[in-house]
Amino acid sequence: MKTVSIKDFYVDMNVKNNGVEFDVSDDGHIGDLFVTKTGIIWCEGKTSKAKGRTISWQELRDFCKNNP
């Protein structure tokens, strides 16, 4: 069963530079998703945040708009 959990629940009303980290698992760790004020960062497996795939909010908007 796929689960998504917040690793650190301390969040101000506005997302700050470090963002919020979500742990994604399905019978084991799949990866981490960071939501920041500049976009999202997907880290497959044990990939560090610095080596993750960054997607800007504009890229995410365009993707969602073109892939309903």
Results as ranks from 00 to 15, higher is better:
Met1Leu: 13
Thr3Val: 09
Thr3Ile: 08
Ser5His: 03
Ser5Tyr: 01
Lys7Tyr: 00
Asp8Arg: 05
Phe9Pro: 10
Tyr10Asn: 09
Tyr10Thr: 08
Tyr10Ala: 07
Tyr10Glu: 12
Val11Trp: 05
Asp12Met: 02
Asn14Asp: 15
Asn14Val: 13
Lys16Asp: 15
Lys16Asn: 15
Asn17Val: 08
Asn18Val: 05
Gly19Asp: 04
Val20Phe: 04
Val20Thr: 08
Glu21Gln: 13
Phe22Ala: 06
Phe22His: 09
Asp23Leu: 14
Asp26His: 13
Asp27Phe: 11
Asp27Thr: 09
Ile30Pro: 00
Gly31Val: 09
Asp32Ala: 01
Asp32Thr: 04
Asp32Ile: 01
Leu33Gly: 03
Leu33Lys: 00
Val35Tyr: 00
Thr36Gln: 09
Thr36Met: 10
Lys37Tyr: 12
Thr38Cys: 03
Ile41Trp: 00
Trp42Val: 01
Trp42Ser: 00
Cys43Lys: 05
Lys46Tyr: 15
Lys46Gly: 09
Thr47Ile: 13
Ser48Asp: 14
Lys49Phe: 07
Lys49Arg: 15
Lys49Gln: 15
Ala50Cys: 03
Ala50Asp: 05
Lys51Val: 01
Lys51Trp: 02
Lys51Gln: 14
Gly52Ser: 08
Arg53Leu: 12
Thr54His: 13
Ile55Asp: 00
Ser56Trp: 02
Trp57Gly: 12
Trp57Thr: 07
Gln58Asn: 13
Glu59Cys: 04
Leu60Cys: 13
Leu60Ile: 06
Arg61His: 12
Arg61Pro: 00
Phe63Ile: 12
Lys65Gln: 14
Lys65Val: 10
Pro68Trp: 08
Pro68Cys: 06
